[in-house]
Computed example of a mutant assay.
Amino acid sequence: MSTQHFIRGYLRASTDDQNANRARATLEQFAKDNGARVAAWYTENASGTKTDRSELMRLLTDSHAGDVLLIEQVDRLTRLTKADWDTLKTAIKQAGVRIVSLDLPTSHAAMTVSSNDDFTARMLDAVNAMLLDMLAAIARKDYEDRRRRQAEGIALAKSKGVYRGRPVDQQLRNKVTELKAKGFSIRKTAELAGCAPSTVQRILKEDIGA
């Protein structure tokens, strides 16, 4: 006998420049294919290496035992260090939430397992806990490797005198300059230009120094 669970979808992108809602349709279709629907969405632009993610914390606060935390990939939930991942796992366990990730097939059964089937639920929890730890470690290593390669590339470019930082599209630069000239705040300028506030600040700083 299966049971319906309250599904909470969590969507995360690392920076304001990225679209955190990119995977929403995929998660909706997955839920539909499993005879369910996502009842609540929690979306934020924040680094997976940080523990202070307001929407993730709100999700856990809103949750009740047996709810499902639905994600596209484990790295959307964590790129944390082991110590921070252990802390987040404790919070998830205390909330009584089960993680279902599209890239972890063994977790999918949590969408339909009966709350009365204690043995199956405990077996699934044990298997998924082990695999989640493995994927969390891989996600962290991938983050550290990318950061190391990026730092090496920047160091090499600087040694050759060719490093200029991230290039900014000229059309975007013109739009930002125009919006600021009209008196919009940095945050409003970023919203209207479709970029991050940090990008607006960088463009203005470069224009001042030009």
Score class of each variant (00 low, 15 high):
residue 56 L to E: 02
residue 95 A to N: 10
residue 203 I to P: 13
residue 35 G to W: 03
residue 153 G to K: 10
residue 76 R to A: 06
residue 35 G to F: 09
residue 20 A to N: 00
residue 131 L to N: 04
residue 85 W to Y: 15
residue 25 A to Y: 09
residue 119 F to E: 15
residue 196 A to H: 14
residue 33 D to T: 09
residue 51 T to V: 14
residue 52 D to V: 08
residue 1 M to V: 12
residue 83 A to C: 02
residue 46 A to D: 03
residue 207 D to E: 15
residue 77 L to D: 06
residue 174 N to R: 12
residue 181 A to I: 05
residue 15 T to I: 07
residue 176 V to K: 03
residue 187 R to Q: 15
residue 17 D to L: 13
residue 41 W to P: 00
residue 143 Y to S: 12
residue 111 M to L: 15
residue 196 A to C: 13
residue 32 K to P: 00
residue 122 R to Y: 00
residue 178 E to I: 06
residue 166 R to V: 13
residue 58 R to S: 13
residue 172 L to C: 04
residue 79 R to E: 08
residue 21 N to V: 03
residue 137 A to C: 01
residue 156 L to F: 06
residue 80 L to F: 13
residue 115 S to N: 13
residue 70 L to Y: 03
residue 7 I to W: 01
residue 121 A to E: 10
residue 99 I to A: 06
residue 197 P to M: 11
residue 21 N to E: 14
residue 196 A to F: 11
residue 147 R to M: 14
residue 31 A to D: 00
residue 35 G to E: 11
residue 32 K to N: 04
residue 89 K to S: 13
residue 180 K to F: 03
residue 141 K to L: 12
residue 176 V to Q: 10
residue 158 K to D: 05
residue 40 A to M: 10
residue 191 E to W: 09
residue 80 L to N: 03
residue 2 S to R: 11
residue 5 H to V: 01
residue 103 D to Y: 01
residue 157 A to R: 09
residue 47 S to Y: 01
residue 38 V to F: 09
residue 47 S to F: 03
residue 154 I to N: 08
residue 155 A to W: 03
residue 52 D to I: 09
residue 43 T to W: 03
residue 86 D to T: 15
residue 102 L to V: 05
residue 50 K to C: 06
